[in-house]
């Protein structure tokens, strides 16, 4: 991780759901985080649904379907070591119009994406004790397909887009 990532970091939020699926965000100072060799990183590119097909849950189903393609791999990797804190990271970009503003106000697609991610992990029996969202602007954490590494790159459209990292902290089994 490069030294200037703290300047690129916008905010961190602890996420939770209450009764009747009420969504809660709590700003947290849980930063910086360290990426461990045991961590599992998923990178999601863009998604799009034709306007006339929206508001039918198609994107939600599609996200869940995509995650489901990796359920056996994720479960195997997440279960292989219970002595260290395995984190599951989901990286995705949001345009500024689809995300909270710079001070965390307004609306965002993150709660829905986080809910899908959380419910997916629940569905494959990976217990999670915390879900934290980190946002970046001037530098983006991305998964580099060519090098298969998690790297930070300069965001050429910093005013228009945020990169989000959802981190699910896996519970550790106590023997």
């Amino acid at each position: 991780m490069e030294d200037n990532t703290s300047e690129a970091h916008v905010d961190s939020t602890l996420m939770s759901w209450g009764p009747e699926n009420t969504f809660n965000r709590h700003l947290t100072d849980q930063w910086p985080y360290a990426i461990d060799a045991n961590d599992i990183i998923l990178y999601s590119g863009s998604d799009y649904v034709l306007p006339e097909y929206r508001k039918r849950g198609i994107n939600t189903e599609l996200y869940f379907f995509a995650l489901s393609q990796f359920k056996y791999t994720i479960k195997r990797l997440a279960s292989r070591n219970t002595t260290t804190k395995v984190k599951l990271l989901l990286l995705y970009g949001l345009s500024a119009l689809s995300d909270y503003d710079h001070v965390g106000q307004g609306s965002s697609r993150t709660p829905l994406i986080a809910k899908i991610f959380y419910e997916f992990l629940q569905a494959i029996n990976i217990p999670i004790f915390a879900l934290v969202s980190h946002r970046f602007q001037s530098m983006w954490p991305i998964f580099d397909m060519k090098t298969s590494k998690f790297i930070f790159v300069k965001n050429e459209n910093a005013a228009l887009m945020y990169e989000n990292v959802l981190i699910a902290y896996k519970e550790i089994k106590v023997n």
Binding site: A37, N38, I40, E61, A66, L67, F70, K149
Partner: peptide, 28 residues
């Protein structure tokens, strides 16, 4: 271990359907 949200899916042909009033949507 890093996973692209999508690789290896090529080996699976699982599709499922979600119906609504007017359409059936297939995911694949």
């Amino acid at each position: 271990m890093k996973i692209l949200l999508s690789s290896m899916g090529c080996f699976m042909t699982i599709s499922f359907f979600a119906s609504d009033i007017n359409h059936s949507i297939q995911y694949s």
